[in-house]
Nucleic acid binder design. Structure first.
Lengths: 190, 190
DNA sequence: GATTTTACTTACTAGTTAGTAAGTTGTCAA
DNA sequence: TTGACAACTTACTAACTAGTAAGTAAAATC
């Protein structure tokens, strides 16, 4: 028995990567197993069903995001730096083999994924929006952001455009994604 | 033999609907066949491969869009009415059982769909952007739209946010999509 | 040192997938 | 009336899907 160090985490990393690359219906246990050099059943040992695997990936991402935003490195940033930190997450995804965000990938296939997974996606999306909204309100109050309407609506617009922008870049290239980010800033920063 | 009227078109309608609902990897020939009350092979008779089917759906959509924008009913509209016409397409998709746009659905699964289909998606996306860009430029020149930066970038932002907004609405409800559209207008219209 | 637990493998199942080959039947043109 | 053709059905295949049950070997625990 060749023991792989931290199999569970390695499987989750690969599953997350495959979700962002091929979508939930676009990868199989066999893909993960062959990439890890183990058998299908080994994946089922750690994650009995694909639903379990998907949910755990999202839960881990939610935990990660919560840790980040509550860490002083992000929490104590000025609004404009918070914005750039957030945009950087998406820019990094694009740079990493043209990945898209988990939320976008799973919402595009929303009606063909398990219900509990839908619930996890909903929760994650709400958490992202809540943070964005608070950051926008903070920045507007501080006079560094300028926009009409509610912070909640502006947050929804920004997140949607990042989500769509990553997908667009797959067909039209990274430059188009950069255009979206730049325009986003032009429409926000004083 | 019970002849279904215009089978080919009926199959295309169903395939388009399934693409927008479940994604390319989320539906099968069996789904289409059972819904139409025919056998699998009947679908293969009209569209030998799933790749053919997908491509034909996109080609038809491209033709339709070309017809629309070249028709006087749209062509001769004022920029603001052109905008509302375009936004209406997406609002209607949302109203129709929470569908997402074809481009978004296929780009989310971009790395697990056939290459020729990727090409069709790219072409459609470019055509949508080109029309949007021209409309934005026209509106800005006419003084009804106001935005910084290039029309191409603003077009990319708007289309991305509509694409992402439809997906977001699946998890968070139609109100969130309306918020995106409203914010979009606030950020554009004088 | 014995026993339990962890992390697998082997071997399998039942269902689904896209796709094919050969036959059938109604329609239409010559 | 015959023959071609369109639009299927029947019957099949090979590959892949998630998932399971039983066995195995090393490591941790007692």
């Amino acid at each position: 028995m060749v023991k792989i160090e931290n199999s569970k985490r390695t499987i989750l990393n690969l599953a997350e990567s495959l979700l962002q690359d091929k979508g939930f219906n676009g990868f199989s246990y066999a893909h993960i197993a062959s990439e890890l050099g183990v058998k299908n059943a080994a994946i089922h040992y750690h994650f009995p069903s694909k639903e379990d695997l998907g949910c755990t990936v999202i839960q881990r991402y939610r935990d990660r995001f919560k840790l980040w935003i509550n860490n002083a490195r992000v929490k104590d940033l000025a609004p404009i730096d918070k914005l750039n930190w957030f945009l950087g997450i998406y820019t990094d995804m694009r740079a990493d083999k043209g990945k898209v965000c988990l939320v976008g990938s799973l919402e595009a296939e929303f009606n063909s994924i398990p219900e509990v997974l839908q619930g996890e996606v909903e929760a994650l999306h709400k958490e992202l929006l809540a943070w964005l909204q608070a950051m926008l309100a903070e920045g507007r109050d501080a006079g560094v952001f300028n926009f009409n309407g509610e912070p909640a609506s502006k947050a929804a617009l920004i997140l949607s455009s990042l989500q769509g922008g990553l997908q667009m870049a797959r067909a039209l290239g990274t430059k188009k994604f950069r255009d979206v980010v730049e325009q986003l800033k032009l429409d926000l920063i004083v």
